[in-house]
Amino acid sequence: MDSGLLNVENLNTRYGSIRAIRRVGLTVKAGEIVCLIGPNGAGKTTLLGTVAGLLNPVQGQVVFNNVDITGWSPDRVLRAGLSLVPEHRRIFGNFTVRENLLVGGVTLSQDQRENLLEEMLDLFPVLKDKLSVSAGFLSGGEAQQLAIGRALMSNPKMLLMDEPSLGLAPVLVDVVFELISKLRDSGRTLLVVEQNAQRILNVADRAYVMRSGQVVAEGSASELSGSEDLFKTYLGGSGVAA
């Protein structure tokens, strides 16, 4: 077995007859920030969804922390220590900010939950004054921070993030990338899907490039970010952040 915290091997997932990902393999070591980039429809969300248990693969293996978690339900995957910040955030809009964070800690004891809540408020000071505000009223940036905070509330061993900067104003995109750097510096393990290839390559250790359901390139972030070819061939044009 590989030495990674997360090992994905030969993973295939379908939507009916559509083969959304094919023979995908990747590894994330503990403490690493790995990013997954690729054009729309490449299968990035499908891959994270399959790892997190939302989708069932037709073939292949997902091994996390030396346990085969292939086909586990999302709640079991979470309990194993793998938490997903889903695409479009999916925070509970009818809930208060506080309740959203509490749901994130549903698997913990009352004490642990309260402690982590305090920790999250230190990490996301903007949420402090908004604890009793309905989450549906948060701005995009606040909502994204809440989504990440909620995912961290389970005290996961590793975090999966699906396009955390999607739909945010440029200033808020900065906030999200700062946050990712902060999480990296605190030793977290992250697998991040991003459209913003150049920027995520600046903070990541390694990267995988997906296209049409397959991994077509991989390497260290610095290697890939210097590669003109990569941007021309796979990401359609320049690597300059939008």
Binding site: L54, R90, F92, G93, F95, E99, L102, V103, V106
Partner: peptide
């Protein structure tokens, strides 16, 4: 109660609730 919060979470977005570790 956490049960109540879980129930409301599942009612609003079942998949998201499932991802939080709520058992269906």
């Amino acid at each position: 109660t956490m049960f109540g919060i879980s129930l409301r979470a599942a009612a609003e977005d079942f998949d998201a609730a499932h991802l939080m570790g709520i058992r269906s």
